[in-house]
């Protein structure tokens, strides 16, 4: 099988799938051209992510990484969520095929984009340093230009 059991489990039974109407932060990353779009919704209360939901257009691993990422940040502080790396998501899923690392990069970025949106709406919360994690070890090499792993944006 192309995917690990963990990936298939999250693909078949995605956790936290859906949207949040009164979300405190929303982030959308990817583009339909390269085949994956993730949208992340966060509910944040006093610096803690109390709820998170996602919508994803994409392949099996895009759905599985979205699901895993939401599970990994739910109940965590915003600061902790900002430290979520694509590598950690990949490890939690027992690995991804090389050409699918791209999807995990998107999952990390979707979380960050949603938090950015939260900070934009709540500048007062922006006191904390933003931990910009630049570990590129496991980054996307697909060259899609749609994620920072590609050296895109």
């Amino acid at each position: 099988m192309l995917y690990s059991d963990k990936v298939m489990d999250h693909f078949r039974n995605p956790r936290n799938m859906g949207t949040i109407d009164d979300a405190d932060g929303i982030g959308e990353v990817g583009n339909a051209k390269c085949g994956d779009i993730m949208k992340m919704y966060l509910k944040i209360d006093r610096g803690i992510i109390t709820d998170v939901k996602f919508n994803t257009f994409g392949c099996g691993s895009a759905i599985a990484t979205s699901s895993m990422a939401t599970e990994m940040i739910k109940g965590k502080s915003v600061k902790e969520a900002l430290m979520l790396s694509n590598k950690a998501v990949v490890e939690a899923l027992d690995g991804l095929p090389a050409q699918k690392i791209h999807c995990s990069v998107l999952a990390e970025e979707a979380v960050k984009a949603a938090i950015d949106n939260y900070y934009e709406k709540n500048p007062e919360s922006f006191r904390e340093d933003l931990f910009r994690l630049e570990d590129d070890e496991d980054s996307c090499s697909s060259g899609c230009g749609g994620c920072s792993g590609c050296g895109g944006f």
Binding site: R12, F57, G60, A62, I63
Partner: peptide
């Protein structure tokens, strides 16, 4: 429109 083929195939396989 609005969906991606690989996830479609995996679910059809199921």
């Amino acid at each position: 429109e609005g969906i991606e083929g690989e996830s479609l195939l995996l679910l059809l396989d199921d």
